[in-house]
């Protein structure tokens, strides 16, 4: 299991990286954390001819606040996001979701941008970004553009990035007070790819009414998906367990689950129901302080 040969570049700026991408297009792969790419290369499933190592572009590594948003540089390590007091305070669901990715050594290397661009349908990060309505800022030869989750994630392992574009930043809204949240997942072993991952947000009003609910599911479709019918069911309601049960059932309806060795399509779909219910209960508990 040794990778095949490649040409190796270490740009120091985004512009240089984009220039290299323009030159080599789809012969080139960006090397960020490498925690998904290098195994693929070691198996020789992937044999990029050119590797553009962006780890030298240090100014893509940051977590900062702008208004009500967190801005996270694409090269920020997952472990830094997980441990960031700012993230834990302003957007705890993000820190929680990231903590499910692999193990510490994987998160030490793995980057936010790398994980999003890899667009694995089971990815915790893509699921939580979908739930949070995060925005991806990409830079290409003509300049930059910003994409929401639905524009960004196209299908299995595929984003709308052009061959010469690079993801540079993710913008994530912070959570207002009085928000219930949860990130729950089912996996064979702790840290394995999720069979189902569910991110939920409950924006509450005074009086215990749910103003808006968001439910994102990972692992049950080619991209992370939002359970819009279930969200609508909860919006404007006082959330009861009966409502949660119903929401789970609604959410499972939209799952286009595919079978693999670990989980049949039927199982996956039903687990979407179960974990949406569990996630909503946990989120509700949090906002009620009932933990």
């Amino acid at each position: 299991m040794k990778p095949s040969a490649f040409e190796y570049f270490t740009p120091n700026t985004v512009e240089e990286a984009v220039g290299l991408l323009e030159k080599y297009e789809d012969e080139a792969k960006i090397l960020a954390g490498g925690q998904s790419l290098v195994p693929i290369m070691n198996f020789r499933l992937g044999r990029p001819e050119v590797l553009i190592d962006i780890n030298g572009i240090r100014d893509l590594d940051y977590i900062k606040e702008e208004g009500d948003d967190l801005l996270i540089g694409a090269l920020t390590r997952q472990r830094d996001v997980e441990l960031s007091p700012r993230v834990q305070e302003k957007c705890p669901i993000l820190a929680e979701a990231v903590s499910f990715i692999g193990h510490v050594p994987i998160r030490n290397r793995g980057t936010i941008g790398g994980s999003l661009v890899h667009a694995d349908p089971s990815s915790e990060l893509t699921t939580v970004i979908c739930c949070l309505d995060g925005e991806m800022k990409v830079v290409g030869p003509p300049g930059d553009r910003t994409l929401g989750p639905e524009e960004f994630f196209l299908t299995y392992l595929t984003t709308s990035l052009e061959p010469s574009e690079i993801l540079v930043e993710v913008r994530i809204p912070t959570l207002p007070q009085n928000t219930g949240w949860s990130f729950v997942e089912l996996s064979r072993r702790v840290s394995d790819f999720a069979i189902v991952g569910v991110a939920t947000l409950l924006f509450m009003e005074d009086g215990g009414i749910c103003k808006e609910a968001r439910i994102a599911l990972g692992g049950v479709a080619p991209t992370p998906i939002r359970a819009e019918e279930a969200e609508e069911l909860l919006a404007g309601q006082k959330i009861t367990d009966a409502l949660i049960v119903k929401a789970g059932e609604e959410a499972a309806e939209i799952a286009e689950a595919e079978p693999d060795y670990h989980a049949s399509a039927e199982y996956r779909k039903d687990m979407a129901r179960v974990f949406v219910q569990r996630g909503l209960r946990e989120a509700l508990n949090k906002v009620r302080g009932g933990e």
Binding site: R44, L45, P121, T155, Y156, L157, E258, Y261
Partner: peptide, 17 residues
């Protein structure tokens, strides 16, 4: 071959896609 042994998780979905 290779892809079946180490990539089974996404094969069905990607084939359909």
């Amino acid at each position: 071959g290779l892809i079946a042994g180490v990539g089974q998780r996404l094969i069905s979905g990607i084939a359909k896609m």
